[in-house]
């Protein structure tokens, strides 16, 4: 165990090694590691952000979906209402039309009946006149009694 100049030489070597490490070895390693740490932290933050925005988008999509459903239901109910309205209208119209047709037919029938009555009346009056002529022969003046017969025919 003898202390000698080796000590000083070793100390110088030690100092140079430390200087070398401080200057050339440590900084690039530190830089690389810190940069990677930052990149990883950024990546994690971005992932978090993405997750959050995904959640927001999901919420939005479910909201708009339910809105659309509501709208569709409204439209369907409106359409149903409209359809029943149209149906009702059509029914009413048909009924009116039918009524009108029936009314027209009735009027025609009445007319027809009246016409038949008229012609029957005329025929009856002429028949009555012919009958009376046959019965009375010349006793009756056609002219004198025609007024009376016409009056009679009108009363029928």
């Amino acid at each position: 165990m003898n202390i000698n100049f080796t000590l000083i030489a070793q100390a110088i070597a030690f100092a140079i090694l430390i200087w070398f490490t401080v200057k050339f070895v440590w900084p690039p390693l530190l830089g690389a590691i810190e940069k990677r740490q930052k990149e990883i932290a950024d990546g994690l933050a971005a992932a978090q952000e993405g997750k959050a925005s995904l959640e927001v988008a999901e919420k939005k999509s479910t909201q708009s979906l339910s809105e659309a459903k509501q709208k569709a239901a409204g439209i369907i109910s409106q359409a149903e209402k409209r359809a029943s309205e149209i149906l009702e209208d059509a029914k009413n119209q048909a009924k009116e039309e039918g009524d009108r047709i029936i009314l027209g037919a009735k009027a025609e029938i009445d007319q027809e009946v009246n016409r038949a009555k008229e012609s029957l009346r005329l025929q009856v009056s002429s028949l009555a006149i012919a009958g009376a002529e046959k019965i009375l022969l010349k006793e009756i003046d056609k002219k004198a009694h025609s007024d009376m017969l016409n009056k009679l025919a009108k009363e029928l």
């Binding site: 202390i3 000698n4 080796t6 070793q10 100390a11 070597a13 030690f14």
Partner: peptide, 10 residues
């Protein structure tokens, strides 16, 4: 011991 002393003294 010179080495260890050199380091320790530094």
């Amino acid at each position: 011991v010179n080495t260890t002393f050199a380091l320790a003294l530094a």
